[in-house]
Lab assay of single mutants.
Amino acid sequence: LQLFIKTLTGKTFTVEMEPSDTIENLKAKIQDKEGIPPDQQRLIFAGKQLEDGRTLSDYNIQKESTLHLVL
């Protein structure tokens, strides 16, 4: 599923993930694309901070959802 990642600077980029992927996987993918170390990434969806060990489906993140990346 394609997700939109929006940064505080207003930049938006996309990543391609599976619902079974963990937040950790997502942070690694963001590191590949943007060079931001996972330990500096905080991801927010629907007002909640996402925890590394959980999956996208745990948070009911669907295709074309927008996640906010806070550094």
Results as ranks from 00 to 15, higher is better:
1 L>I: 14
1 L>E: 04
1 L>M: 14
1 L>T: 04
2 Q>E: 09
2 Q>L: 14
2 Q>F: 10
4 F>V: 09
4 F>R: 14
5 I>T: 00
5 I>L: 03
5 I>Q: 00
5 I>A: 00
5 I>R: 00
6 K>Y: 08
6 K>H: 09
6 K>P: 01
6 K>R: 11
6 K>M: 12
7 T>N: 06
8 L>D: 14
8 L>P: 14
8 L>E: 14
8 L>W: 13
8 L>G: 15
8 L>R: 14
9 T>H: 14
9 T>Y: 13
9 T>E: 07
9 T>A: 10
10 G>F: 04
10 G>V: 03
10 G>W: 03
10 G>S: 04
11 K>L: 11
11 K>T: 10
12 T>C: 05
12 T>E: 08
12 T>G: 08
13 F>S: 02
13 F>D: 01
13 F>G: 01
13 F>T: 03
14 T>Y: 08
14 T>H: 12
14 T>F: 08
14 T>N: 08
15 V>A: 03
15 V>Y: 03
15 V>P: 00
15 V>D: 00
16 E>P: 06
16 E>M: 14
17 M>L: 13
17 M>H: 04
17 M>F: 14
18 E>K: 10
18 E>S: 10
18 E>N: 15
18 E>T: 14
18 E>C: 05
19 P>R: 09
19 P>Y: 12
19 P>A: 13
19 P>W: 08
20 S>R: 11
20 S>M: 11
21 D>T: 06
21 D>M: 09
21 D>L: 05
21 D>G: 10
22 T>H: 05
22 T>I: 06
23 I>G: 01
23 I>H: 01
24 E>A: 15
24 E>G: 13
24 E>T: 12
25 N>Q: 12
25 N>G: 09
25 N>D: 10
25 N>V: 12
26 L>I: 09
27 K>V: 01
27 K>F: 02
27 K>A: 01
27 K>S: 01
27 K>E: 01
28 A>Q: 15
28 A>L: 14
28 A>W: 10
28 A>N: 12
29 K>T: 10
29 K>V: 13
29 K>R: 09
29 K>N: 05
30 I>A: 01
30 I>Y: 01
31 Q>I: 02
31 Q>N: 13
31 Q>S: 15
32 D>L: 10
32 D>V: 11
32 D>G: 11
32 D>T: 11
32 D>A: 13
33 K>H: 15
33 K>W: 07
33 K>E: 13
34 E>F: 12
34 E>I: 11
34 E>M: 15
34 E>V: 15
34 E>R: 09
35 G>L: 05
35 G>W: 04
35 G>R: 06
35 G>I: 02
36 I>W: 10
36 I>R: 03
38 P>K: 13
39 D>C: 06
39 D>N: 14
39 D>R: 15
41 Q>F: 13
41 Q>K: 01
41 Q>N: 02
41 Q>H: 03
41 Q>P: 01
41 Q>L: 05
42 R>M: 11
43 L>P: 01
43 L>N: 00
43 L>A: 01
44 I>E: 06
44 I>L: 09
44 I>T: 06
44 I>H: 13
45 F>Q: 03
45 F>I: 05
45 F>D: 01
45 F>H: 07
46 A>H: 15
46 A>Y: 08
46 A>I: 06
47 G>V: 02
47 G>D: 07
47 G>Y: 05
48 K>I: 15
48 K>Y: 10
48 K>C: 04
48 K>F: 08
48 K>D: 06
48 K>P: 01
48 K>Q: 13
49 Q>I: 15
49 Q>H: 10
49 Q>R: 09
49 Q>V: 15
49 Q>M: 13
49 Q>E: 14
50 L>M: 06
50 L>C: 03
51 E>Y: 05
51 E>T: 07
52 D>W: 03
52 D>H: 07
52 D>F: 04
52 D>E: 10
53 G>H: 14
53 G>K: 11
54 R>N: 12
54 R>W: 11
54 R>H: 15
54 R>A: 11
55 T>F: 08
55 T>D: 03
55 T>C: 03
56 L>Y: 01
56 L>M: 06
56 L>I: 13
56 L>S: 01
57 S>F: 12
57 S>D: 15
57 S>L: 13
57 S>V: 11
57 S>Q: 14
58 D>L: 02
59 Y>Q: 03
60 N>H: 10
60 N>R: 07
61 I>V: 07
61 I>R: 02
61 I>S: 02
62 Q>T: 12
62 Q>F: 13
63 K>N: 15
63 K>G: 12
63 K>M: 13
63 K>L: 07
63 K>V: 08
63 K>I: 08
63 K>Q: 12
64 E>L: 10
64 E>S: 09
64 E>T: 10
65 S>E: 08
65 S>N: 08
65 S>C: 03
65 S>Q: 08
66 T>F: 07
67 L>M: 04
67 L>R: 02
68 H>D: 07
68 H>C: 05
69 L>H: 01
69 L>A: 02
69 L>K: 00
70 V>Y: 14
70 V>R: 07
70 V>L: 12
71 L>I: 14
71 L>V: 15
